[in-house]
């Protein structure tokens, strides 16, 4: 069984997401809405990480530490300059999408195993990531024209 690997993957990516949202919040303190919303979204992810813990423990034996690919390249450092906000939101979008995809895949297996707790957990993560993605896209769309056309 490889399900433990995916559980671990979702869990670790969600932890990365908490860090990523906090990092972007800190880097863009001059944009009050970005600062506050990223803090809020980090707190949602943090809550999920904690709620996920018992399940992670339950499947511990099957886990194996595959290094997560995305956060090695994305948002290593937050950026500076005219494009910074847009690029950082873009990265956040990709990391959040990774959580969502992992979770969708995991949910298939969970359904097969009829693990009700895990399925409920997956649904909750999917719901939250959808809301996170929706905000990231709204904000990135708002920033795009001014950044790409006007900014120096």
């Amino acid at each position: 069984m490889h399900i433990g690997q995916y559980i671990d993957l979702v869990h670790r990516t969600e932890i990365d997401l908490v860090k990523a949202f906090k990092k972007v919040a800190k880097a863009h303190g001059d944009e009050p809405d970005v600062y506050q919303t990223c803090q809020l979204l980090a707190s949602w992810s943090q809550k999920l990480v904690e709620e996920f813990e018992p399940i992670v423990k339950r499947y511990k034996e099957e886990s194996d530490k595959e290094p997560d690919r995305l956060t090695q390249t994305l948002l290593k450092d937050t950026r500076k300059g005219g494009l910074a906000l847009l690029r950082d939101l873009h990265d956040l979008y990709l990391i959040t999408t990774e959580v969502k995809v992992c979770c969708t895949i995991l949910k298939q297996a969970s359904d097969g195993l009829r693990d009700k707790d895990l399925t409920a957990m997956c649904e909750e993560i999917e719901r939250q990531t959808t809301r996170q993605l929706s905000w990231l896209l709204t904000r990135a769309k708002q920033a795009a024209p001014q950044t790409l056309i006007v900014a120096k």
Partner: peptide, 9 residues
């Protein structure tokens, strides 16, 4: 909108 984040539907 999402009432918590302002994300547009």
């Amino acid at each position: 909108y999402d009432l918590d984040t302002g994300a547009a539907v």
